[in-house]
C-alpha cells in the first residue's frame, strides 16, 4: 500500500457486480483484474500474482471452496469471499480452507473496503513486525511483548487460555476467525468440534475486557461463523 498501486483480482460471474467493483475500487486507487469463471480466475491469479483476490462463492464452473483450495496450494495471497446469504456453511468452509474474510451480498462499499484493508494489513504485519507490537483499540491496550493487558489503564489478569484466545484474535485483528480455527489454535486439534468451550471462554474474556459484555465493543460475534476483534 506504500504508494505503489495495490492489485486486486475479482473472480465473479455477475457482470453488474464486476462493473460496480471495477468503478468503486478503481476510484479508491486499486488496480483491477477480472475473471468470469473459476478456471480463468485460477489462470489469472497465477499470471498476475495479485495482492488480493475477491472470489464469488457461486461460480458457474467451479465450486468456490474448491477454487480457494487450489489457490491456497501455491499462494498465501489474501482471499476475500463474496457470499450470498444462503451459503452459510460454504462460507465457513471457505474460511477454514484459508480464505481470509468474507462479505455477504448485498454489501456496502465501506464494509468491503474495511475487510480488504484488514486482510492487507494482516499480511503487512506478518511481513514487518513480529512479537513485540502493542495493540490498542479504544480503552483496550494489549502489549504482546510484555504479555500485559490494560483496560482504561488498569491491568487485567487473564487465565492462560483466555490470554491465548485473546492473542490469537489480536494476531488476526479485523479478520474473522472461525470456531474451528480458534479451537485448533487455543485448545489444539482434539477440541475443534466443541464450540461451546470457545463460547464459555469468550464470555469470560468479554466480562473482563468489555464495559458491557452484552453490547461488546471489541470482541464481536459472527454467529454461525466465528469471532472477530474489531480494529476500528
Amino acid at each position: 500500500m506504500s504508494g505503489q498501486e495495490v492489485t486486486v483480482l475479482v473472480i465473479e460471474d455477475e457482470p453488474e457486480i464486476r462493473r460496480f467493483l471495477r468503478t468503486t475500487l478503481h476510484a479508491h486507487g486499486f488496480r483491477l483484474y477480472e475473471a468470469v469463471t473459476g478456471g480463468d480466475g485460477l489462470a489469472e491469479a497465477k499470471s498476475r500474482n495479485p495482492d488480493l483476490i475477491l472470489i464469488d462463492l457461486g461460480l458457474p464452473d467451479l465450486d468456490g471452496t474448491e477454487l480457494i483450495r487450489q489457490v491456497r496450494e501455491w499462494t498465501s495471497t489474501p482471499i476475500i469471499v463474496l457470499s450470498a446469504r444462503d451459503q452459510e456453511q460454504m462460507k465457513v468452509a471457505a474460511l477454514d480452507l484459508g480464505a481470509d474474510d468474507y462479505v455477504t451480498k448485498p454489501f456496502g462499499v465501506n464494509e468491503l473496503l474495511a475487510r480488504m484493508r484488514a486482510a492487507l494489513r494482516h499480511v503487512a504485519r506478518i511481513s514487518e513486525t513480529r512479537g513485540d507490537s502493542v495493540f490498542t483499540l479504544g480503552e483496550l491496550r494489549i502489549d504482546l511483548g510484555r504479555r500485559q493487558i490494560f483496560v482504561s489503564g488498569k491491568e487485567i489478569h487473564l487465565t492462560p487460555i483466555e490470554y491465548k484466545l485473546l492473542t490469537t484474535l489480536v494476531r488476526h485483528a479485523g479478520k474473522v476467525l472461525t470456531h474451528r480455527q480458534l479451537l485448533k489454535e487455543v485448545w489444539g486439534p482434539l477440541r475443534v468440534e466443541e464450540a461451546h468451550y470457545l463460547r464459555v471462554y469468550m464470555r469470560q474474556l468479554r466480562s473482563k475486557l468489555e464495559e458491557n459484555p452484552a453490547q461488546p465493543r471489541y470482541l464481536h460475534t459472527e454467529l454461525g461463523v466465528g469471532y472477530r476483534l474489531r480494529t476500528e
Partner: peptide, 13 residues
Amino acid sequence: WHPVDEVVGAALT
C-alpha cells in the same frame, strides 16, 4: 450451546 447474552450481543452489533 450458546450463552443467550452472546446471541443478543451479536444481534445488537
